[in-house]
């Protein structure tokens, strides 16, 4: 690519990895009908990130990520605890965790920013993502983690497919539901935690949801959907990050989301499976077929007897 620094290429490469991994994880969340849980988890990660920084007093990405993970998992546990113990519904529980944890995160963030040395935290970048500000070490961490996720998904593809579509049968052949549940949650939290650096907590859910839904418009097959979702996620990550570098201090998150949304729109209209274009053609064909059997259309007059 022209005119891009060595550093910029590194950033783009790690965004490609992240987007790909997020696309995969997003498919799982989609089939488990937990698309918005990832939004709640992402918001819940914020206090953990801040605490991770505050404990050490200096920025250490692994520690902050660990804090984020702990915080997100606590949030996940809280949602299930609320749901299990009384009549508050799941969507309300998610909303509570999302906003309360985020509120706590902002409280802590503000306090840290006012501390001496707080300005070096880079914590503000976690709100909207600041991929361009990542240092080489961070990128290496991100890329490595994303690669591990990819590997795990590829190796146990059959198990994932079974667990998502036929959990009863999976249990029957000895595939532990609890193991898969734990693995799924871990996967999701890991992706969220490394992703929030680049996309921010508020928009992280987008990277998990949009590529997966886009893929649905092209295929019915799970494997193909995973591949497409990964492709779309990676593409959005690269495109969005690239555009964000064109401006001064532009956050990466929103641009990545817009890129993903663009891909979604294209899929919505032109997708071969359920796209609007294809559907319009199908309806034309169907209309032609149904015409000879049209039922009596004119409305009956008041009180008129039916034949």
């Amino acid at each position: 690519m022209m005119g891009l620094s060595h550093n910029a290429l590194w950033v783009l490469a790690s965004m490609l990895m992240l987007g790909t991994a997020a696309g995969l994880a997003g498919c799982f969340a989609y089939w488990k009908r937990q698309s918005l849980m990832s939004d709640a988890l992402a918001h819940a990660a914020l206090p953990g990130v801040v605490i991770g920084f505050a404990i050490l007093g200096f920025k250490s990405l692994p520690v902050m990520l660990l804090g984020a993970a702990a915080s997100a998992l606590l949030g996940a546990w809280a949602v299930t605890a609320i749901r299990a113990h009384n009549r508050v519904k799941e969507d309300t529980a998610m909303g509570i965790i999302l906003s309360v944890f985020f509120g706590l995160g902002i409280m802590l963030l503000t306090m840290v920013n006012r501390m001496p040395g707080g300005g070096q935290s880079g914590l503000d970048g976690f709100i909207f993502g600041q991929a361009a500000a990542m240092v080489r070490q961070d990128m290496r961490t991100m890329t490595a983690v994303a690669a591990v996720v990819l590997l795990v998904v590829l190796i146990s593809f059959k198990e994932w497919k079974l667990y998502l579509f036929d959990p009863a049968f999976a249990r029957g052949i000895g595939l532990s539901g609890r193991l898969m549940e734990a693995a799924y949650l871990t996967l999701l939290v890991v992706i969220i935690v490394i992703g929030i650096q680049a996309v921010g907590v508020i928009l992280m859910a987008a990277l998990l949801i949009i590529p997966a839904v886009s893929a649905r418009y092209w295929t019915n097959a799970f494997g193909t959907m995973l591949a497409l979702s990964a492709l779309f996620g990676g593409g959005a990550g690269v495109a969005g990050t690239y555009v964000s570098t064109l401006g001064d201090g532009w956050p990466t998150g929103p641009f990545i989301v817009i890129a993903a949304a663009g891909i979604f729109l294209l899929s919505l209209v032109f997708g071969t499976r359920k796209g609007l274009f294809v559907k319009a053609m199908q309806r034309r064909a169907q209309m032609r077929r149904l015409k000879p059997q049209a039922v009596r259309r004119d409305p009956l007059a008041e009180g008129e007897a039916l034949p």
Partner: peptide, 11 residues
Amino acid sequence: LGGEVRFFGTA
């Protein structure tokens, strides 16, 4: 998608 329904002779 099609057809007619009448309750007490009216819509």
